[in-house]
């Protein structure tokens, strides 16, 4: 089958690959580029485990064709920690016991990051709305909501 070139920025580094036309961004990231932090839970856009950030927008990588991402700036949970220091969201998820099986966690964190980038001081309702596309089957939602609110407070204290 004919291959098509794709080139984008992933967590700050340039990536280029030849992929089969029709390959999802999820499969391109996981199988070709080796970033397995986005997870495939349903491959039909309902569970949110594959969530990534494309040009600042939260996107489902299982419903995004890789070839539409040429030139894009893509961020995943694997790229959040800087110099080995956890991002405040990661730290808050750790401290708040907001992970159980961990499979939804990278998607949850990307969804939360897009929220905090736009709404640095979100209400509880804002957080619930922002995470509403992400399923935690272990049903640990409450600690996740608390973690996002805690990370927001930590951010605003650092900014002050």
């Amino acid at each position: 089958m004919a291959k098509v070139p794709v080139q984008f920025t992933l967590n700050g580094s340039e990536k280029a690959e030849f992929i089969e036309s029709g390959t999802t961004l999820l499969n391109a990231l996981r199988d070709k580029i080796g970033d397995t932090s986005p997870k495939g839970g349903c491959h039909q856009g309902t569970c949110g485990a594959c969530s990534v950030i494309i040009d600042g927008e939260l996107r489902l990588s299982c419903l995004t064709l890789a070839e539409t991402c040429n030139g894009a700036d893509i961020k995943t949970t694997a790229g959040l920690a800087e110099g080995g220091v956890l991002h405040p969201l990661q730290r808050a998820f750790l401290d708040a016991f907001a992970t159980q099986c961990g499979f939804c966690t990278p998607g949850m964190i990307t969804a939360a990051k897009v929220l905090l980038d736009r709404t640095p001081n979100p209400s509880r309702e804002d957080v619930v709305e922002a995470l509403s596309g992400n399923i935690c089957r272990c049903t640990g939602y409450e600690p996740i909501i608390q973690a996002v609110l805690t990370a927001a407070r930590a951010n605003s204290q650092n900014a002050a």
Partner: peptide, 13 residues
Amino acid sequence: SPGHVTGKTAYFA
């Protein structure tokens, strides 16, 4: 948990 929040936990897939 550190593996989960950094996306480093290795699931079979």
